[in-house]
Each structure stands twice: as structure tokens, then as C-alpha cells.
């Protein structure tokens, strides 16, 4: 199977800091691919290369096997790659539909927005994804709990992503039950055939939700696991450099 999104031998240098040294990464449709690594391993830089924020100094990004140059995040979005940032990037005073359609409003007569239709489509999409917000579609998202806000941000990405959703620490700020809800949401999105890139420090959670795990260390991929091949100890070994199953260059 061809990876829907891949990075191959990517180099990225900031001044004297080599954030990525021939880092590679692959995500497949209908799979949750976890990206793990210690602080400074290059996760964040790699994520930004994949979502179009940075362009690589060397190496290439491929979508469906075809090399692409992503000029900016909007370019990535236009190609079906959505990113859920850690700070969610929601406008708290707008309601859920306002946020979901922000910048992509449905229009009437060219300049007016068609809010009822946006609200309807948002409610339908939330219902499909099992996000239980449909009753409160008129409230500004500022009134939502942290988990609900996270759900809105993820559901927004899910509504627009045709290929890949990149999630940066989607459960970092959430309680236990909210986390479970968000992980369920991640699985439902995966089951729709979308590739989910899941960045997290929480290894038990990664083992629970990920179909594949890729480990980044010092700016390069050092290990890859399929579901069931890894446990917490082996992941920690890979993250800390004691284990590798891949030729690092």
C-alpha cells in the first residue's frame, strides 16, 4: 500500500541546530500512526514539514506517492491535510458551526453567510462522528468544556480532511473521561479511511490507539512498530536510544 502522506530523508536546519537529519515518516489511510520521541527529537519540526508550515532543506514530502512542495498550511489543507494544533485555534465567541466553517463559509448571494445550512451540516457531521454537541449548537464554544472544545477542533479537521489529520497532543489537557471520548473520536475518524497522525508523550495511550508507531530520535526515525509489536519498555528504549530496528543515517 502507498502511504497517503510520507516524508523521506528530510533535513531541516535552524541556524546551527539540525532539527531533522534525514528523518522519514509514513502514514497510511485508515490507520492511526503515532509519532513519538523525546523533547527535541524533532517531532514538532517534522509535523510542521508535513502540514506545510516549513519546507524541508533536503528530502521530500510525498502525497499518495507523488512528491509535492507544500508552500504553506493552506496549500496542505487544499490537498486534504488538516492539522489540529495544541492550542486548538478556535474563536471562542463563535458557535461550533461558526468555527467549523471559519474561512470556508457557505454563502448566499456571494457575500452573505448561510448560517442555518452551516449549522445543519455541522450537526450532521458531529452526529456521524459521535460528538454529542448537537443540542447546544447556538452556544459560543467559550462555554464548552476542554474536552468539548477539543472535539470541536478535531471534528472540524475531520469535516475538511480528505486524506490526513495531524493531531498534536490532542489529549494533553484533558481529564480521563474526556480523553477516552477524544480517543474514540480518533478511532472513528480512522475508520472513515482517513490517515491520523497522532503525536503524544503518553505511551500507554499511544499503544492503545495507534495502529503503527514511528519513533523519532535526534532528528531521525530509529524504530517502527506495528500494533502489538511494542510495549512501554521497548518504546522507552527506542526513544532513549537503547533500541533501534531501523538503520539511522
Amino acid at each position: 500500500m502507498t502511504p497517503v502522506l510520507g516524508a523521506y530523508r528530510v533535513m531541516k536546519t535552524f541556524g546551527h541546530v539540525r532539527a531533522l537529519r534525514h528523518a522519514s515518516f509514513e502514514a497510511f489511510p485508515g490507520e492511526v500512526t503515532a509519532l513519538v520521541g523525546d523533547n527535541g527529537a524533532g517531532k514538532s519540526t517534522l509535523t510542521k514539514v508535513l502540514s506545510g508550515v516549513y519546507s524541508p532543506d533536503e528530502g521530500e514530502v510525498r502525497i499518495d506517492g507523488n512528491p509535492v512542495r507544500l508552500s504553506d498550511p493552506h496549500d496542505a489543507k487544499a490537498r486534504g491535510i488538516e492539522t489540529v494544533y495544541q492550542d486548538l485555534a478556535l474563536a471562542p465567541d463563535l458557535d461550533a458551526a461558526g468555527n467549523v466553517f471559519l474561512g470556508r463559509e457557505l454563502r448566499r448571494f456571494g457575500i452573505l453567510h448561510n448560517h442555518p445550512e452551516m449549522r445543519r451540516r455541522t450537526a450532521t457531521a458531529f452526529r456521524d462522528l459521535g460528538v454529542g454537541l448537537v443540542q447546544d449548537m447556538r452556544a459560543p464554544v467559550a462555554e464548552f468544556s476542554g474536552g468539548q472544545k477539543q472535539s470541536v477542533a478535531i471534528a472540524r479537521a475531520a469535516m475538511w480532511a480528505t486524506k490526513v489529520i495531524i493531531m498534536d497532543e490532542p489529549t494533553a489537557a484533558l481529564g480521563v473521561i474526556q480523553t477516552a471520548k477524544v480517543l474514540e473520536l480518533v478511532e472513528r475518524i480512522r475508520d472513515k479511511g482517513i490517515a491520523v497522525v497522532f503525536i503524544s508523550h503518553n505511551l500507554p495511550q499511544v499503544l492503545q490507539v495507534a495502529d503503527r508507531i514511528e519513533v523519532l530520535r535526534l532528528g531521525a526515525r530509529v524504530a517502527r512498530f506495528r500494533r502489538g509489536e511494542a510495549d512501554v519498555d521497548r518504546l522507552i528504549a527506542a526513544i532513549s536510544g537503547a533500541y533501534a530496528n531501523e538503520e539511522s543515517s
Binding site: A89, L90, A91, L94, G103
Partner: peptide
Amino acid sequence: FAIGSNPEAARRAG
């Protein structure tokens, strides 16, 4: 409204 609410969210929304 979006810009007044969160300019960064508006920017990221294009």
C-alpha cells in the same frame, strides 16, 4: 467577530 475573538484562529483559518 472571529478576528476580535482570536486573531490567530482567524489567520489559521485562511
